[in-house]
Structure formats: C-alpha cells, structure tokens
C-alpha cells in the first residue's frame, strides 16, 4: 500500500490534465463563464473539504459559513498591513482553531449535538464580529482592494483544489484515514482497537476547517467590501451540504458530480427566478434523502454493477454513522 498503484497513477494523470485544462478557461472568457467557473471551483473546494470530514464520520457540519467568513475577515483586516500569502496561512490557522474548539466541545457526543452547534455557529461568529467591530473599531465593513482579477482568484482556487485532493489522498493512505474507516464501521471496535476516536475526529475537522478558512481568504478580494452579513452568509453552509451529498461522499472526487450541475442550476434559478432559490434548495434536500441517498456516485456505481455482473445492484449500503 506504499507504492503507487496503476489506478492511482492514472487518476493522478487524469486529475492533473483536468486541472491544466481548467486553468485555460480564463484565457477563453473573462465574463460570465469565468465567473461561473469561479463559483464551481469555489464550491468544489468547499464541498471536498467538507467531505474530508463529513464523508467518513457522517456528521453533518453546517459550520462552513463560519470558517469561510473567518477566512474572509482575516484578509479584510490584514490586507493593508500583511502580505497575502501570510494572510492565507493565518486564515487556515484561524479556521482550524475554531474547528478544533467546536470539535472538542461537541465531537465526544452524538451527531445531533454537533449539527445543532454548527447550525448557529456562523450566526454566532457574525454577532461577535459585529459587536467587536462596532465597539472597538469605527466601521462595520472592510474594504479589500487588491490587484487580483477574477482569473487570479480562479487560478488560486484551482491550486487550492489540487492541494485539497492531494491532502485527501494522503489522509486516505494514512493511519488517520484508516482509523476513520474503522470508526465509520463501528466506533466501539475502533475504541477497543486503540483508536482515540474523539481526537481523530477533531483532527479531521480541523483539517477541513483550515481549508475552508483559506477558501474564504482567497475569495475576499472578489467581494471588495467585506461586512458581517455577507461574509457569514449561512446559506453557504447549506449549499455545501447539499452539493456534496448530491455528488456523494464515498470518493474524494464524488462531490464534484454534485457541485457542477447544482452550481449551474442555482445560477440559472437565481438569475431568472430569484424568489425561488429557497424552494430549490428545499427540493434538492428532499431529492438527496428520498431519491439519491448515496448521491450521483452511488447511482453510477449501482448502474455499473448491474451492467457488469448482470445481477441487480445491492440495496444501498450506507455505513453507520
């Protein structure tokens, strides 16, 4: 398991080629399609980072908006004084740290506590940031002026996507990844095999939170003006959950299959029927639960299995949370 398998090599080559091809998009268009591509890349990174944690643990995290907003704010606060790469690092640390705190408080307990805690987390951080700003600084909003264009942001997101995929692949090969697979099967066995279950979950959540923090930082120049309600928009958390589950969480690349169609669809719906976005998200959630419990990936796997062996696909085998 230490050497590259032929399959891994093939995936790596295809992945690198796809990234290289995607990197050419800004050369072809710098208007609508580039902006759409940025959104897709954004959600691809967010959903994959989310899946790093929520895939193996089955904990539904709604903390994405909080980590993302913290990343955005880091850049907003520091852009005039510190170099951008350093701000990215700070955003990663801040995101990871908050994830660690949330994890320590909730991950010892059942998944419900975790969901509830993360449900209001973005709102909580927004309140605190607003309060701090109104009481200790002059303005609530922050200006982020940089020389970055949409294309720069897109390339940074692609780089980040590559980093998330490589990290995910390394985790899967590591003891931590193996521990998570055991935990996903049976936590009791995991504990008695010597795995510190709570600690493993917290570490994974911190890695996920750190990546989401960086993503928020990368996106900050796009907003130009950062204020709490836009930076900590709770809708991001829900969109990430829905896209990742729509794609599937069993493979590293699976969320991508949800991100691409959903981002395009959401873009169309919000452009033509701006009052129907809530309804659309609601219906998507219902679809994930009742029609695609293992996401598009699960559906494809079932089809392949049916074709390949000529016998009906087995009933959706969802691992126990």
């Amino acid at each position: 398991m230490n050497a590259f398998t032929a399959r891994e090599l093939r995936t790596a080559v295809i992945g690198a080629a796809a990234l290289a091809a995607a990197a050419l998009i800004p050369l072809a268009d710098d208007g609508y399609y580039l902006s759409l591509a940025v959104n897709i890349a954004l959600y691809a990174v967010l959903c994959t980072a989310w899946t790093l944690f929520s895939g193996p643990t089955h904990y539904i995290s709604l903390a994405t908006a909080a980590f993302f907003g913290i990343g955005t704010y880091t850049v907003g606060l520091g852009i005039d004084t510190l170099p951008f790469p350093l701000l990215l690092a700070i955003a990663a640390i801040a995101g990871g740290l908050i994830a660690g705190l949330v994890g320590v408080a909730t991950l010892r307990l059942s998944g419900v506590y975790f969901v509830i805690f993360t449900l209001g987390l973005a709102e909580l951080v927004r309140q605190i940031v607003t309060w701090l700003q109104t009481n200790f600084t002059n303005a609530v909003g922050l200006y982020v002026f940089t020389d970055f264009t949409e294309a720069h942001i897109f390339w940074m997101l692609l780089g980040l996507a590559a980093l998330v995929y490589v990290t995910g692949w390394l985790i899967n090969r590591s003891r931590l990844g193996f521990a998570m697979r055991i935990i996903g099967n049976d936590e009791t066995v995991a504990r008695h095999a010597g795995i510190d279950v709570a600690r493993s979950k917290v570490i994974l959540f911190m890695i996920s939170g750190a990546f989401i923090g960086i993503t928020g930082a990368v996106l900050a120049p796009r907003f130009a003006y950062v204020e709490p309600p836009s930076a900590f928009n709770p809708l991001i958390s829900f969109q990430v959950v829905i896209m990742a589950l729509l794609g599937g969480t069993s493979r590293l690349w699976a969320p991508l299959l949800g991100v691409i169609p959903f981002t395009i669809l959401f873009d169309q719906v919000s452009a033509h029927f701006p009052n129907h976005t809530s309804l659309m998200i609601g219906i998507a959630f219902m679809a994930v639960v009742y029609v695609l419990p293992r996401g598009v990936t699960g559906l494809v796997e079932d089809l392949v299995r049916t074709r390949g062996s000529g016998r009906p696909a087995t009933v959706a085998e969802r691992a126990q949370p």
């Binding site: 193996f178 697979r181 055991i182 996903g184 099967n185 049976d186 066995v189 995991a190 095999a193 085998e317 691992a319």
Partner: peptide, 12 residues
Amino acid sequence: LPSLSAIENVVA
C-alpha cells in the same frame, strides 16, 4: 467491520 476486507479487519 463489514465494509473492510477480511485482511483489513485484522490490520485494524
């Protein structure tokens, strides 16, 4: 551990 192979069960 049902979703692991036999040998992975032991490696665990």
